[in-house]
């Protein structure tokens, strides 16, 4: 039995989650406290992946990441090679698809923080950036961890977007959910059973953890 898809999925989930938390925490901060025109337009844009079908996102990404697309062209200039059908490509696709799922919970935690805490930090002379790192982040670590776990679970099971942007290349873009789909398609039921079984305890345990983290 081929265990490589499980590894690819785990790698995809770990890298996408780290990347997204790094992007989402400052983004959520800007969305909660920033005062700039067109903020609501930008927030809707961030949330768009929730509303769009994975195939639509996949199709746009296919175009953007392809050799003729902007992102694909820049990537080729800088790193050489294409983004489509590569591991880096599916990391980008999964990150775009999961952006709202990490920004929204972090934003919610930021909103719950007592505003006096932040005001006190200002009064005591902390800059906005220092406030972010020394007041906001330490006070919302549970919420950020919960967001990270949700994104991790989502990326672990990513299917539609990855299939469209990554195809199914062994060791590169054949993630576990695609391997399961193909195993079923080719009537390799024992492999489908085993790969599916690998998801069950991981997902269940992580959901318990999310529950615990967000209880307060």
């Amino acid at each position: 039995m081929d265990l490589l898809p499980l590894y690819v999925s785990a790698k995809l989930a770990v890298i996408t989650t780290s990347l997204l938390i790094l992007i989402s925490a400052p983004l959520a901060y800007l969305l909660v406290y920033g005062k700039w025109p067109g903020k609501f337009l930008f927030e809707a844009l961030v949330n768009l992946p929730i509303a769009l079908p994975p195939t639509v996102i996949g199709f746009y990404l296919l175009y953007l990441l392809g050799p003729q697309g902007y992102v694909g062209a820049i990537w080729r200039e800088v790193f050489g090679g294409t983004l489509l059908f590569t591991f880096s490509g599916i990391v980008i696709a999964t990150a775009v698809y999961n952006l709202p799922f990490s920004v929204q919970p972090i934003k919610a935690t930021f909103e719950k923080i007592d505003p006096r805490l932040r005001e006190n930090a200002y009064v005591l002379g902390l800059s906005p950036v220092a406030t972010f790192f020394r007041v906001m982040i330490p006070n919302s670590i549970n919420g950020i961890a919960a967001a990270a776990i949700l994104v991790f679970l989502h990326s672990l099971g990513a299917f539609g977007v990855v299939l469209m942007v990554g195809g199914s290349i062994s060791g590169e873009t054949r993630v576990a959910s695609i391997a399961i789909y193909e195993a079923v398609e080719t009537m390799n039921y024992s492999e489908a059973w085993l790969l599916s079984l690998a998801f069950l305890p991981v997902s269940y345990f992580l959901l318990l953890l999310v529950n615990r983290l967000t209880r307060h």
Partner: peptide
């Protein structure tokens, strides 16, 4: 379609 788009086969 994948090959046209640069898939590494």
């Amino acid at each position: 379609a994948q090959i046209i788009n640069g898939a590494p086969y």
